[in-house]
Design a protein around this nucleic acid. Sequence first.
RNA 1: GGAGAGAUGGCCGAGUGGUCGAAGGCGGUCGACUCGAAAUCGACUAGGUGGUCUUGAAGCCGCCUCGUGGGUUCAAAUCCCACUCUCUCCGCCA
Length: 423
Amino acid sequence: MLDPKLIRENPDSIRTMLENRRASWPIEEALALDTRRRELLAEAESLKAMRNEGSRKVAALKKEDPEKARLMETLREAGVRVKALDAELAKVEERFEELLLQLPNMPHPSVPVGVDENDNPEIRRWGTPPSFPFPPRPHWEIGEALGIMDFDRGAKLAQARFTVLRKAGALLERALINFMLDLHTREHGYEEVAPPFMVNSATMRGTGQLPKFAEELYRCEGDDLWMIPTAEVPLTNLRAGEILKEEELPLYLTAYTPCFRREAGSYGRDVRGMLRQHQFDKVEMVKIVHPDSSYDELEKLTSNAERVLQILGLPYRVICLCTGDMGFASSKTYDIEVWLPSQGKYREISSCSNCEDFQARRMNTRFRSKDTGKIRFVHTLNGSGIAIGRCLIAILENYQREDGSVKVPEPLVPYMGGLEEIA
RNA sequence: GGAGAGAUGGCCGAGUGGUCGAAGGCGGUCGACUCGAAAUCGACUAGGUGGUCUUGAAGCCGCCUCGUGGGUUCAAAUCCCACUCUCUCCGCCA
């Protein structure tokens, strides 16, 4: 959520933002609602002030004073009018709020203006894509041949886009989770959290999934609960509604969770294999920080995610999402893309964003400044650290050998109970 | 699922119709004392929002908020209704 004052005082900045994001939003309606809201507020408040003062007089007047009955009648009439004004005000505010919740975040000035993924500049590359003396196979062929991935039975148990991992495949999944959590908690200073995998509507609203993206979520019938599409949701909302002490900042949180996404609108894309699943595992990193340091923290966060790939020896590149390709809640996003030999290209494996105070406003998470005593919104960041399923795919493809076996990256061997190859 | 108890400021806790945005305590900030600290003493210390003034901040005026939403009343933390959550006991259960 953006500051309503910004819309009122600088509507052109909103218009530019919407254009750059290729988004539409009824700004004229919002401005009219804001004006009407303030008119109604002024009128209702002055009436209430009058009534409050009158009530104080009533209390002071003697019971038999004829003035008392007259005054009470006047105030009763004022009360009727106040009720009508409040009712209209509530309607106007409800609509205004609804609109505010649909307005995307303002991109940082350093974000390149662009239309789609073709306009995302590459920031840096790490590693060299491996060359194979044979045509590299896609992960689903490798996985099925090794008996560690079972797509048919995943579909039988649930639906398409669900996969069963078995034996060394299931073990590799677990090894990756533990490896990443250990790295972030022991070397990068994150606190490990085990959050709920289902959250309520208010929590979903806090990070921006609701109300706009409900069709992307799985919901539990009969309860106000939704399956989380990412651990960003519970981690970021952990301190919702709280006023933090400045000394508590920055908070670094990490969690492993499964993620549940309906993938509505992605029909026909990445249908084979487990690149795009309805349920996938992810280790997520979230930061809750002082507004002055959030862009330094974004760089550090991104490098924390890169470190995972470096240790695993997986080639990647970092791109900066342009205005037309950015997520709804983000001010600036770096995507990390890992090399997939079977596709001969880099594919997203992590997304690191600074949401500035966009989520903090929705969640109402603030801190009290030590110097001034004033209360300000925190900044929130999130980044995959990293997507487990896609990392597993990348390992299978980059470490595959001609005989169909897969070498286990050395740092992972201890997490695999000493297993050095999957054969 | 059944029965009961509860929800008040950063925390604890008092408050059954007006003098209450709220006693008292803790915590915090500032000041006095001190070479410094502790102890002691004093002052200040909820959030949101509209207006006004201002380059801005501060200030000033007002409105709202005592779990949430309604209702009664000139007036609600206080009375009524519904809901949510927490705790205790019973049932069920990994």
